[in-house]
Design a protein around this nucleic acid. Structure first.
Lengths: 224, 224, 224, 224
DNA sequence: GATGAATGAGTGTTCATTCAT
DNA sequence: TATGAATGAACACTCATTCAT
């Protein structure tokens, strides 16, 4: 979830039992490990023992901070959604012309998915569990609507300036963008086997990204 | 020694619990229950005890016929892919005009995904496991390429008759169709919570299906 | 148990399902496989499935002929004791001078143990089970006493002719012979590791055999 | 913060079932029970459920401390060899005249085997498994060579003082002693049935012990 | 705040055995 | 006589979790 920082990793402090009395860092360490664990093996597939073993903090701390496995999973999910939300809010496409703004939005979203497979996989995991943990997420809902509103404004600006259709529904455009970005990561493995085509390959991904941008633009443009 | 009876097989007693010495029926029963179990809870989340259904006996037969949980999962995955393959091969869109053929293809694919969420979920599960069981599927690869070739022929016919672009790549169209059909089912639960929009709702699904058809046509058409 | 005959093994008959209607051969086949299985892995360690799988006759036949696993084990044990009994009865040492007769007896016994580790291992297995299956053996008891009587006669002849002590008890000599012959095979593996000395090595075995002969002679001789 | 209490450890409550937070005691308890279980029924024949004793909790601790059944078995085997090693090292026969030293050595070894049938049976079990767990024993090898060297010194002293032969090999004497002591316990049950002679009977054992001492002395003495 | 020891319910799997033909 | 299908009890082992310090 976090871009691999250059700052020295934990254990940089001399004493082996470092991080004593730094609960925030302990929590963050656990969350980082747990994110990869849940993204790799899912909720049922991950083992508390493994997560506890990989963390410098002991397994017991998981229960101390997150109550149980499900609590940890929810914290991981929340952290993931918070991360993508903060990214989307930072996107400054409002000043660009509508077509460029839309293209840029799609590019960023596509790239984010490609670079954060853990996010994609966690969303898959949550859907396998029929979204039963979503209700416990504090800010996720507002985040989703925010992204939709952001897109709606772009489409409106395009419609006003005559480059975009007036009859295309933002929810459809939004869903298509999400689907096309998500699928490239989510279904990488089955597609690779069925079509002998690795969507995770960087060359494939780059050309696919532009194809997706093109597809969304064709979907929204008034005239070709 | 044994008179090869002409009488219909034991399958004539549909609802009965009799599974005595009818191995095909026993296997099919297990596969049916296992398909729903794995689709609901994934490979690690499913419990062999639940898969066996109510009888403890059939649970044992899992090991008799499928060796272990993973073998059963593979058989389920294979059955699922075999089913969708046979459907796709039965599609007769070759006689329709290219635009209608493409539209019909998308509609059928969209509908199949909507009506077979267990297929979608099994594919998600397999991707969570990084496709490690795909290699054991016998005919899946040829199936995938078949669908792509089917689409390629339609696009070619459209390009020849001047209604479709010549510069659109079949793999991109194919991926987009799959993504748009898949996402509606796969991400139903998270989207429902984030956007307060249930893609599984029949009304929503119907309008979404036409939106997807439209999007794909706009992607392929030479002129709007 | 049986010296590896040169005669063609089973499956020499063309039809794959050969041995139909040859129950004695079927039983013998099962016993042969079972002997090696029980000798290798013990009673609890052997698997009926394996034994049934290695036999050309099906697993089900084991129950048909031997009732259950324990019945098969008893039959194996009995066959083993019958084999060694027939060998001992065939030994013609009564005509030799006492010292040579005793030496020859020890040599034969030592060699038999070395060449039939399955026998030694089965006896170990039976002792692990505290001899609870011995009672079901029909002729074993008479066999044991026969061997003791055979030795007793030799010792008596030696005592009469003045070469052997009169005060050595046959049971002690018999036990010593058995112990020294048995141990070389039974404890081969632990000794090999503890002393870095492989008693199963043919060179070691040959020199050990003569050492045992010498030891027994020194035990029985009146004068050195 | 915590006053380091001077009060004695929990081991002061010997018979109590309290095994709380006393890992050494817990391990020792498990090993004790497991020793008897493995000695009685072997590795495959023993049931983890039985080994755990009455409490289901201690059953779980097997995996906590010994990883699995095999790990527990190895620990048991190691403990057994460590016990006999410490006994042998404590033997002070170096000051006795050679003949008495040898006699005493044999007596002690014979008695140890008689009084520790579980040791004998564990060695049998390990040989049934072809000594595949011996390699994991830490100190066993040095132990075995120690006993051989102890015997070698006695034989050397005897040879130097003219009471023992110079041409008898220590490895042969050592093997004979082991064989004669081992067999009395290992083959008790089959011999009892075949010869109607219980080597475990105390009277029989006592006379047999002296017979073994005599046999070994006759083997080593220069003149009778 | 932090930890090693302990726990009970349940996991996938294997076993010897029997059924129906 | 012979066999593939079926079975229930038990098996070794793992899980998330809690206790005592």
């Amino acid at each position: 979830m976090k871009t691999p920082a250059v700052q020295p990793r934990k254990k940089s402090t001399p004493a082996s039992n470092a991080r004593i009395n730094d609960p925030e860092r302990t929590k963050e360490d656990i969350l980082e490990i747990a994110t990869h664990a849940f993204a790799r093996d899912g909720l049922t597939g991950s083992r508390i023992n493994d997560i506890g073993g990989l963390t410098a903090a002991s397994k017991r701390m998981i229960y101390y901070y997150f109550e149980n496995k499900e609590g940890l999973y929810r914290a991981v999910l929340e952290r993931c959604y918070a991360d993508i939300r903060s990214r989307e809010e930072a996107i400054g496409v409002e000043d660009l012309p509508p077509e460029e703004a839309l293209a840029q939005l799609v590019r960023l979203k596509f790239t984010y998915h490609m670079e954060h497979p853990e996010f994609v996989r966690l969303v898959m995991v949550e859907n396998i569990h029929q979204g039963e943990h979503m209700r416990y997420l504090k800010e996720a809902r507002t985040r989703g609507l925010f992204a939709l509103q952001q897109l709606t404004r772009i489409l409106q600006r395009g419609a006003d300036s005559g480059v975009f259709r007036k009859d295309v529904r933002p929810i459809d455009v939004h869903t298509s963008i999400s689907a096309l970005c998500f699928y490239n990561v989510s279904n990488r493995w089955t597609v690779a086997h069925l079509l002998e085509h690795d969507m995770g390959d960087v060359t494939h991904a780059a050309s696919r990204r532009e194809a997706v941008v093109d597809e969304i633009l064709r979907l929204c443009r008034l005239k070709v």
